[in-house]
Write a protein that binds this DNA or RNA. Structure first.
Lengths: 220, 220
DNA sequence: ACAAAAGTGTTGTTACTACACCCATGG
DNA sequence: CCATGGGTGTAGTAACAACACTTTTGT
């Protein structure tokens, strides 16, 4: 048993993706009391010589297999009674991953793992509802002033997919022409020269991000 | 002695103000080894039933007497070796206070307390240099898209003081006319009807913030 | 031929930037 | 009367928003 006077330090990972034009987050279903059956963000107490960032990367890898996603510290949640079993201070991180090629892996720690639409979450354990709100607000803002959308898409993508990702998180429709113009003018995306194939309509040009690394840009 | 396998949780407070047109931060001089004589942000391990926000408010009150400043979580710093005496995870908060009416109070914990110009800091203890960089970047950004500048000024102020605060943090000159127009158009400041007096030049109209509470606005 | 999504230009409006002179007060 | 900072308007420019039809492919 841990010393009652010292808080334990944990990490929670809020993992976002876009599925079918709407933002989704990864939730796990808890096994243990007092939240058995409840859904929550995957997380846990950090190792003795582990940083919270390393823990977040570990969780991301364990649950999704993704290793190079955009990962950012969201903030620390430390209300005294947030965990009924004792004082736990948790550092939340959020990640953006492309939906394609992610195979969710359940572990024996959890009863289930699932993508949930970010706007229709089930009741969550701990203070994870507030965490979800904060994370969604952060991602929305971040998309507007940075290039982090690269982390939501595969290396090459039709422009409509990128636009759909923006529309999904921003919750509003954007104009195709203005959107393309802006992104090209900023040098954010560049054409690969390749095209989509096998879809029942005109093939789309594939683009890639000029930089797949965080940068500040006025997208909107 | 604390259990070596459990990190301790601390808070550090990065307290900003504007003095003579340049941004300053509050630093304390450490007494104890291994950083005796070094400057650092005031901070310390949190109480058993204390949140990091409460701790930050306590530190702010203790060092400056200020109780109602804008306070925001900056982020958590948790490199394994950031404290040579053992694992300490610290949650940094930053505050904005008006220079006028702040009487710095030293405590017996520290050898000295002083305002330092944010661009010319002495060597700092721990990872506080990185903390300072992050805090300054955050404040700069925040001033651009929010009304938090209210926390840097007294309740009534001449417009030139507000402009000086912006210029101090942004590091660039702004145009008087454009600045006033923008703030009025946004409804961010309103004239009080009163004027400055006793200065050796034309008296300035005093303004106040429409809201002295956090809000999002496109200032720049 | 039809369905489905891709691609492509122009125009009006708005917001931003740049800029210089006179005014009120204290000493 | 002089020094100091306060106060005020306009015009050019650049960015943004709104908008509809044609093209290419698969079935």
């Amino acid at each position: 048993m841990a010393d009652d006077s010292l808080p334990r330090v944990a990490t929670d990972a809020v993992i976002f993706t876009v599925i079918g034009g709407t933002p989704h987050v990864l939730l796990v279903q808890m096994k243990k009391k007092p939240f058995a059956g409840r859904w929550a963000f995957p997380g846990g107490v950090i190792g003795a010589r582990e940083t919270t960032e390393a823990a977040a990367r570990r969780i991301l890898r364990t649950q999704t297999g993704v290793t190079d996603a955009y990962l950012e510290q969201l903030g620390t949640f430390d209300a005294v009674d947030r965990d009924p079993l004792g004082r736990v201070v948790t550092v939340a991180w959020f990640a953006l991953v492309p939906a394609a090629g992610v195979a969710l892996k359940t572990t024996d720690r959890y009863a289930d793992v699932r993508w949930w639409p970010a706007s229709r979450l089930p009741p969550l354990a701990y203070d994870h509802r507030a965490m979800a709100r904060a994370a969604l607000a952060r991602v929305r803002a971040k998309l507007g002033y940075s290039n982090v959308a690269w982390s939501l898409l595969p290396k090459a993508f039709p422009l409509s997919d990128l636009q759909a990702a923006y529309e999904a998180f921003l919750g509003q429709a954007l104009d195709k022409r203005n959107f393309l113009r802006k992104l090209l003018a900023l040098g954010l995306v560049v054409p690969t020269g390749r095209r989509t194939a096998g879809c029942a309509h005109r093939p789309a040009a594939l683009y890639r991000f000029a930089k797949r690394a965080p940068a500040f840009v006025d997208v909107l």
